[in-house]
């Protein structure tokens, strides 16, 4: 095994490995310098170095790896938000299926009343998961649909109500106000709701994910994250920057387009994939 001195050059190479995972420059610098602390000038093998880097990433990510918390509240209201195309609707289908299998009574509300065939898409997911989908006509007010859905879910004795929303970019003030209104209306019905607000992030997204979390959190009190499309080659390194900056729980990751392609977030596996441990 060839060993190399952990010097400035080596550290720069490691920084670049992390930057190439979408971690961002600042966080990559912090992670490598934490990892190098007390080890500078030591002779190490490539495997050892990668392992140390993976350990450091794992250390940062462990506190945020938490499953979606379940409450005794009935119905527990789960609001799902995010930018366009990130995977909100698909993730709701997958989650509904998981909760249904766990014996929960689940209802879905098709709160994307804007995009073409968004309702039909969610209805197919509802069928796949074996869960009813409450709908409103295209163009109608998503806040009043959410309100009606809460009434229905209460009447039906549902354990969980999952509310889909239309995709919106966080810099669109009008659409963010629409989201704020959905939250306000939900709270009129139950001031402790929504009990979870999930922000769905796309793993192919770069540094803009930081702005997404910042603004969606301010507007809709995001309580946890889901990162989709980690079955591709994007490493999702921006999650490390997010953990560092916001500390929001990561509940699950999307690893495909099928109903079972939703996995718990595992910091070790994530760190391994990110640093390339075990892959030469």
């Amino acid at each position: 095994v060839t060993r190399r001195v952990l010097d400035d050059d080596m550290i720069e190479q490691l920084e670049e490995l992390l930057i190439a995972s979408d971690m961002g420059v600042d966080t990559a610098l912090r992670v490598t310098s934490n990892m190098a602390e007390g080890r500078f000038g030591k002779k190490l093998s490539t495997d050892e170095i990668k392992q140390m880097l993976a350990d450091e990433v794992t250390r940062v990510m462990e506190p945020v790896a938490k499953p979606l918390p379940l409450y005794s509240k009935r119905p527990q209201v789960v609001l799902v938000v995010g930018v366009n195309g990130s995977g909100k609707t698909t993730t709701i289908g997958k989650l509904a299926s998981q909760f249904k299998s766990a014996g929960k009574k689940v209802v879905i509300a098709a709160g994307d009343t804007f995009r073409a065939a968004a309702v039909e898409q969610l209805q197919v997911w509802g069928e796949r998961a074996g869960v009813p989908v409450l709908t409103a006509p295209e163009g109608s007010d998503p806040a009043s649909l959410a309100f009606d859905a809460m009434t229905r879910a209460q009447e039906d004795g549902a354990d969980l109500l999952m509310i889909d929303t239309a995709g919106r970019l966080q810099n669109r003030a009008d659409l963010m106000e629409e989201l704020a209104k959905i939250v306000r209306v939900i709270r009129k019905k139950d001031e402790t709701a929504p009990h979870n607000t999930l922000l769905v992030l796309d793993a192919t997204t770069g540094q803009n994910a930081l702005n997404q979390v910042e603004v969606f959190r301010n507007i809709s009190d995001v309580s946890g994250l889901v990162m989709t499309k980690l079955d591709g080659t994007a490493k999702g390194g921006v999650l490390v920057a997010l953990a560092d900056k916001f500390g929001l729980p990561i509940h699950a990751i999307g690893v495909g387009e099928q109903i079972d392609d939703l996995a718990p977030f595992d910091p070790k596996d994530f760190a391994k994939a990110l640093t390339g441990v075990g892959s030469s």
Binding site: A116, A117, A118, E120, Q121, L122
Partner: peptide, 16 residues
Amino acid sequence: VYRPAAMDQLKVLGAQ
């Protein structure tokens, strides 16, 4: 032929 309602989506846009 994979994504649910993908064809409907294009059809709705076409009508629009």
